[in-house]
Computed example of a mutant assay.
Amino acid sequence: MCRTANGWDINGFDQLKDGRGNICPVTVIMPTLAMEVKTREVEWTKDNLVDSFMDYLDVKINEAKDMLLERFEYICSQSPESAKFMWENNVMAGYIPEEGIRSALSHGTLAVG
Rank of each mutant, 00 (worst) to 15 (best):
E73F: 00
I96L: 11
W87L: 01
V91N: 11
E73K: 11
L49I: 12
N89Y: 04
S82F: 08
Y95P: 07
V50D: 15
L49E: 14
R71W: 13
I75E: 09
I96D: 14
P80M: 03
M54H: 11
I75L: 08
P97N: 02
E88T: 04
T45Y: 08
S77T: 01
P97F: 04
S52V: 02
D51P: 00
Y74C: 06
L69R: 13
S82H: 06
Q78P: 14
N62C: 03
Y56M: 09
Y56I: 03
L69M: 11
M67Q: 15
Y74E: 13
K65F: 06
Y74H: 12
E88D: 09
Y56T: 03
C76L: 05
K65L: 10
E81R: 10
D66K: 13
S52H: 06
M92D: 09
S79R: 01
S82P: 04
D66E: 14
L49W: 03
Q78R: 15
V59K: 05
A83T: 11
C76H: 02
D58H: 13
E88K: 00
N90E: 12
M92G: 07
N62W: 07
E81D: 15
A83C: 07
V50W: 09
S77Q: 09
M67A: 15
P97C: 00
I75Y: 08
L57W: 00
I61N: 06
F85D: 15
N89V: 02
N90Q: 10
M54I: 12
R71E: 15
P80W: 00
Y74W: 13
E70I: 12
N90L: 03
A83P: 04
S52N: 07
D58E: 14
V50A: 15
L49V: 08
F72D: 12
D66S: 15
M92H: 10
A64E: 06
K60V: 00
E81V: 05
A64F: 04
A83F: 09
A64H: 05
R71Y: 14
I61Q: 08
D47P: 03
L68V: 02
E81Y: 02
R71C: 15
E70P: 08
V50M: 14
Y95F: 04
W87K: 00
N89R: 10
E88M: 00
N48A: 01
S52C: 13
W87S: 03
V59T: 09
K60A: 07
L57I: 05
E63C: 04
V91K: 14
Q78S: 15
E73H: 03
F85V: 10
A93P: 02
N62V: 01
P97G: 00
D58K: 09
F72H: 11
